[in-house]
């Protein structure tokens, strides 16, 4: 595997950071004060090798949590992301994962099942045929990565709202969490899950998803950055307990709304 700043070699144990996160929420006031101090003092050190002392890290995560709340306030459930004509769809789409494409492990669509958990009434597992039988929606939207790149993609699938309604999910719950075949846990807030431009995508550009892009099912939402769009989904859970996510456990903001 290539070395990457996106994949730190000294990645902290995810469980430890997740534990910190809940702790930090109670320490926000203190964290903000510390950030005020460190912003000033660390500036003097930018030329040097700035390490991540615990206090700085906690302060930054505390502000990040605060930002998550500000972002939730800024989110307008009725605001639609710009859409584009089908002629602008990039074929094939851009590949990205936390590993290179050669490590993609294709999922067998015939035996694949979508498991459900948490605050959902009917937890019967879903097959690909079941999902294909639900009403579909096509959207041509921009995929924007936190890294800065973007492309226009055309996705067809089941609106997540439709799926959650059909399965009797508690739509007042806080989070919708995903498990994937490539061990890339992810989660979004319920407001984003219910947004009309959030779909469980089964197709790209009118064709079934190709293996590297998440066959058989991936999430595509126009209101979150790229890393909130898990591929190769195997399980969906509706919950009120903060579920975190792959990059979130390594420091990236959780809300990541656009």
């Amino acid at each position: 595997m290539t070395k990457s700043p996106f994949r730190p070699d000294d990645a902290p144990d995810a469980s430890v950071l997740d534990m910190h996160r809940t702790l930090i929420r109670t320490l926000e006031r203190r964290g903000l004060l510390r950030a005020g101090l460190t912003l000033g003092s660390l500036v003097m050190l930018t030329g040097c090798d700035v390490k991540r002392p615990e206090a700085v890290e906690e302060a930054l995560l505390a502000i990040s949590n605060l930002n998550d709340r500000v972002q939730a306030l800024l989110f307008d459930a009725n605001k639609l992301a710009p859409t584009y004509p089908a002629s602008m769809i990039l074929r094939p789409p851009k590949f990205n994962a936390y590993y290179d494409v050669t490590d993609v492990k294709p999922v067998n669509g015939a035996t694949w099942k979508l498991e459900l958990g948490g605050l959902i009434q009917n937890k019967r597992p879903w097959t690909l045929q079941d999902l294909q039988a639900l009403p579909q929606r096509s959207i041509v939207i921009k995929h924007i990565c936190v890294e800065g790149w973007s492309y226009i993609g055309g996705w067809t699938g089941v609106p997540l709202r439709t799926f959650l309604e059909r399965t009797g999910a508690d739509l007042r719950a806080k989070y919708v969490a995903f498990q994937t075949a490539d061990n890339y846990p992810s989660s979004i807030d319920m407001a984003a899950a219910l947004h009309p431009q959030t779909v469980l995508a089964l197709q790209y550009g009118g064709q079934p998803l190709a293996d590297p892009f998440g066959f058989p099912v991936r999430l595509r939402t126009a209101v979150k950055l790229g890393y909130k769009n898990p591929k190769w989904i195997t399980a969906i859970e509706v919950t009120n307990t903060y579920p975190g996510g792959f990059w979130e456990s390594k420091g990236f903001p959780w809300f990541a709304g656009m």
Binding site: T2, S4, P5, F6, P92, F95, N96, A97, Y99, D100, V101, E147, W149, P212
Partner: peptide, 8 residues
């Protein structure tokens, strides 16, 4: 044509 992830 083959794919690759961004180079970093």
């Amino acid at each position: 044509v083959g794919l690759a992830k961004p180079s970093h």
